[in-house]
């Protein structure tokens, strides 16, 4: 492998309704990195993640995937990306198993060694496989979405507030899961207000109209 980082953000700025949300955001994420995007409410954390996954276009700047702008390697980038947003795409009338099934089939990545039942077991949803998601609690619904992490074989995880509605023991488990992923050469970008109890987390702070990165 070369030393090219997996994902590089160069000089990204984003403007909405004539208001500069953030400008000149620079960051790089290499294999083995966890990047925590922090900032106040409304500082553009979610927007930055959407720029990274490509559903929002920045006013200026580029995202580079392994050194190539993402719009030039869209398919390759899309197949190595897992995104769990605020609205994680869990259909409330489907069961956890059916939800994970369709979400997994959309991906082109190779199958993980875990089965859907394994993944649901890991997030503590044994016995809920056949219950429609609307009768699960908010935390349990979140866990259904997070079970995708155990099924994924992709390199880059992008998680928007993954700890929302998750209990303390669940948070610990999730942190272990992320550590496992980066130790296998993956990378994670996440937003959270909670301090992480993982060593070596890079942070990117978004503030009013500017940003600064620190190690």
């Amino acid at each position: 492998m070369t030393s090219t980082p997996l994902l590089q953000l160069s000089d990204i700025s984003f403007e909405r309704d004539d208001r500069l949300l953030f400008s000149a955001v620079n960051a790089s994420v290499a294999a083995g990195d966890i990047l925590q995007v922090s900032g106040d409410n409304g500082s553009g954390k979610t927007t930055l993640l959407k720029v990274i996954i490509g559903t929002l276009a920045p006013q200026s700047g580029d995202c580079l995937w392994r050194g190539t702008p993402v719009h030039q390697c869209a398919l390759e980038y899309a197949s190595e990306l897992l995104y769990i947003g605020h609205q994680p795409g869990i259909k409330s009338t489907l069961t956890p198993e059916e939800n994970l099934c369709w979400l997994q089939r959309l991906s082109l990545a190779e199958k993980s060694s875990h089965t859907i039942a394994d993944a649901l077991g890991k997030v503590g949803l044994v016995g809920y496989e056949d219950v429609p998601c609307h009768s699960l609690s908010a935390g349990q619904q979140r866990r259904v979405a997070l079970a995708r992490l155990y099924l994924s074989t992709v390199k880059l995880w992008i998680l928007d507030e993954p700890f929302t509605a998750i209990d303390r023991q669940g948070v610990t488990q999730l942190e272990q899961c992320m550590q496992q992923h980066v130790s296998e050469g993956g990378a994670v970008i996440l937003t959270t207000h909670q301090p992480l109890s993982i060593d070596g987390v890079k942070t990117l702070h978004l503030g009013a109209g500017h940003s600064k990165g620190e190690q």
Binding site: Q87, P88, L108
Partner: peptide
Amino acid sequence: DGSLEQMIISPQ
């Protein structure tokens, strides 16, 4: 519910 986002960013 965010499913559409998942479809748009999927490699399909």
